[in-house]
Design a protein around this nucleic acid. Structure first.
Lengths: 226, 226
DNA sequence: CACCTCAGGACACGGCGATGACACCCGGGC
DNA sequence: GCCCGGGTGTCATCGCCGTGTCCTGAGGTG
């Protein structure tokens, strides 16, 4: 089951939240301030419930910090704020918070939101380097490799592959691929996608990974190691 | 740029929203009630701003409907509700709404939320999986599997199976199936359904799931694990 | 037993996707 | 400026898979 880290300076609030979440089967960690929260990060919480109004605006700081660090960026954050602090709420979303709850909130609402955010974020998992079926793409060095062999690839093929690998196990139509990889403003023939798929496959043949790029007849293409 | 569909029965509200969104570069569609919204779906809005309090609770209905239809399920919905209708807010989230805004709201907040939801939904990976009797169909990856074995299936068989699995435990006549799976404009022989049922069964035999597709003599076919 | 419905095999056509060829564009080197 | 080469988009062609129809036989039903 998922672990939730509550960061709030009021013990009463923490208690209420802890009770509700534990009843719903979550594991709960508590911190009363930002520093304590940071110390608890090694416990690998799946989600943070973060009170906006921590002393010294440290809630905002913490959120910003977590979202800037690649290692913690993927931890979703739900902000808790008092009703009416609208400006803060907006900043919270801008900072990268994934959702927020206004006090006072009902237990049911909170659980519903925690679940919703977890469901969303689970699939996301962004990282610079992605590995699927032994094939590795690294968006920092802009390089594709398998084992210790580098694969030479043209720009468009690279973008296509990168899109596929960040959206694996999904079937895409040609027009979706054009929108996503070429940009939805340009107009090119749908069949062009076929050609680039073929070129990409050819490039992947060098290491025997062409089977990862699959044709879904009547629909489009899919990237998957299954 | 993204397209937003506003569904609200109050023209003033729509105007305000439209103005703000267009200023932020969105394309805006307007509907004053659920039916009009449905008619605008072919315009492919990227997100819906849906007033909760449409006459006759049709806002809830619309949301539920959209989230149940595989074709529209992925369109994110932001609910607009009057402050304090908390029960409704929860129901809204349960219905599948992705977020909500309480009236009155500031333009900035609205834009921030629309952007946040769009950002999320883009990366999102709702595995729209349906499982019946150990057989799994996933309309996102467009794949059928049982256990860890993938089942190879032709386009028409796939659509047929998908329809059956989303409408399990009901018997359908051949003409109903033709309407639903082939489309009600095309004309093909009723017996053709038999042939595709047979092909589908053959495909399911690979994992021993052919018994799920049952013949209802004198009526048609039914998909069920009972 | 006669009738009707469904299962299953066979087959021909059409369309979709794979593939190779080619023309154009752009940038770098001379 | 000119040439060269890699990259990209388009087109025509080919082959195969998917699809719809027909026919026959099996099995259930009255």
């Amino acid at each position: 089951m998922a672990t939730v880290l509550i960061v709030d300076d009021e013990p009463d609030i923490r208690d209420v939240i802890r009770f509700t979440l534990e009843e719903s089967g979550f594991r709960v960690l508590e911190a009363s301030h930002a520093d304590e929260a940071r110390r608890l990060l090694p416990e690998q919480p799946d989600i943070l419930l973060l009170d906006w109004m921590l002393p010294g605006r440290s809630g905002l700081e913490l959120a910003r910090q977590l979202k800037q660090n690649p290692k913690t960026r993927s931890i979703p954050i739900i902000m808790i704020s008092a009703r009416g602090e609208e400006d803060d709420r907006i900043k919270g979303l801008d900072t990268g918070a994934d959702d927020y709850i206004t006090k006072p909130f009902s237990p049911r609402e909170m659980v519903a939101r925690v679940n919703a955010v977890l469901r969303r974020s689970r699939a996301e998992e962004v990282s610079a380097q992605i590995e699927i079926g032994g094939l590795i793409i690294d968006n920092v060095s802009h390089r594709v490799s398998a084992g210790d062999r580098a694969i030479d690839i043209a720009p468009t093929e690279y973008r296509l592959l990168h899109f596929f690998m960040t959206h694996a196990d999904r079937a895409f139509s040609r027009s979706q691929l054009l929108d996503q990889v070429w940009g939805n403003h340009v107009y090119v023939e749908e069949r062009t996608v076929d050609v680039h798929v073929r070129r990409l496959r050819k490039a992947l043949e060098a290491t025997g990974h062409e089977h990862l790029l699959q044709t879904v007849r009547g629909v489009g293409y899919r990237f998957s190691d299954k």
